[in-house]
Amino acid sequence: MTKQTFEITVDGETRSVIAEPDMPLLYALRGALEKKGPKFGCGLAQCGACTVLLDGEPIRSCVTPIDSVSGEVRTLDGLATDGTPHPVQAAFIEEEAPQCGYCTNGWMMYAVAMLEKNPDVSDQEIRDNFAGLKCRCGTHMAILRATKAAADAMKA
C-alpha cells in the first residue's frame, strides 16, 4: 500500500499525517501526533485502553483505520483546559482511582462521553457504560466512585 496524507482534527487542532490508509488511528496518535494518552493494550478492540472520542462517541483507535476517520478526535491529552482538569479527571484524581494508570484512559474517555451527554446517570448505567473495559489492577470500585462523583459535579 502506498502512503497518503490525511488531515485529522485532534484536540481542536487540524494536523496532517502521512500514513498508509489502513494504519490504525492509535499509531498515528501515539506517533506523529504525539498524543500519548491513548494506550496500546490489545490491538483487538477487547480492552479499551486505546479509546478516543470521535465526535463525542468513544471509539477503539487500535482498530480504526486512519482513512476512516472524519470528524473531531478528542484524546485524554486534550481533556484539561489551561491546566484545569476536566471534571472527570478531577474526580479520578480525588478518588485516587488509578493504580498503574495504563487502562485509565479508556475509563475516563467512556465516562466523559457518557457524562457530557447526560450527567444524570444511575449506578447501573455507569456499570453498563463500562461493560467493554478492562482493568487488571482491579481499580473498578474506585473508578465507579470517581465516575459517580464526576456526574454529581457535572450536574451541579
Binding site: 498524543k35 500519548k36 494518552g37 491513548p38 484524546t75 485524554l76 491529552d77 481533556l79 484539561a80 491546566g83 484545569t84 482538569p85 479527571q89 478531577a90 479520578f92 484524581i93 480525588e94 478518588e95 485516587e96 482511582a97 488509578p98 498503574c100 494508570g101 495504563y102 485509565t104 484512559n105 475516563m108
Partner: peptide, 19 residues
Amino acid sequence: MTEWTGRVEDRRLLTGAGR
C-alpha cells in the same frame, strides 16, 4: 480551579503524561 491532590503519580498518569 481544582487542586491536584491525591496520588502524586496520578497527575501524569491521568493526563497522558505517564512514561
